[in-house]
Amino acid sequence: MTADIETFAKTAEANTPLRMQVLRNIRNRPTASGAAIAIAILVLLALLAPVITPQNPYDLASLSVMDNRLAPGETGMTGITYWLGTDAQGRDMLSAILYGLRTSLLVGLTATAGALAIGSVAGLLAAHFGGAVDALLMRIVDFMLGFPSILVALILLSSIGRGVDKVVVAIMLVQWAQYARLMRAAALVERRKEYIEAALNFGLPTRHILLFHLLPNSIGSVLVVASISVASAITLEATLSFLGVGVPVTQPSLGLLIANGFEFLLSGQYWIAVFPGIALVLLVMSLNLLGDRLRRSFNVRGP
């Protein structure tokens, strides 16, 4: 409020690194810390899936068609207890969900990382060079953001076909534009600061100024938004897979599992669709809650 209070508040800041402040901010919120723990567990389960699952759900040799559509808790021919039931091919749902979690996380994280990289570079170049470069890049961004992302992704995938790599590319292409816009706005603010003038005064190469001065100081808000967008990338992937244009059947994600169970939902075999659904909701909700907390503690406005 007053200059004095600011001075005093800086005392507190100077003592605590930003990381610590954010950590404290998360730890003090039960929802945020709950979300963080949930994410940690889900990621750990996904990583360890091959070790901890009772069967490899995509090794057809280990499946028994006789075990198909068993209800949760039943024990099958192979002697495994299917705690979450089995699907139409006699596949253990628990194993399928953990493998699906892997695919969903893999797609969500790589697509976000890719979109972040493309968008950041585009935003940085637009901010630094301005003029025609800026105008061209930002018109492309406006164009991209003008269409619903699900529509663009659907059209893209129906022309290039299914595949984990293709879904990643499609999500990257529909998501980079938001990062470009954010990055440009942040970089435009930073570019006016005196430390950039100092870098110019030292005759430092443009590449160096972009990489070591402008980028590290502009990327904060973009990273925070990216952390929230992992959730939307996962949702988008799930939607595409549910619609049958996403990941291939040989490597199903949570979205595809839900689609597979969908036809049995009305015949009472709810577990085939509902359990993957719960896993997806838990993952997306936790990511959103944590991302929202991060956004607040960095004081970043959403896209």
Binding site: K193, E194, Y195, E197, A198, A199, N201, F202, G203, L204, P205, H208, F212, H213, P216, N217
Partner: peptide, 28 residues
Amino acid sequence: QMVFQDPYASLNPRMKVGQLVGEALRVH
């Protein structure tokens, strides 16, 4: 060389003092 007005805005907040002072020496 220039010495700037705002001691808060004229130093890159992501660089350590040693890096910041030696930057031009290193790059050039």
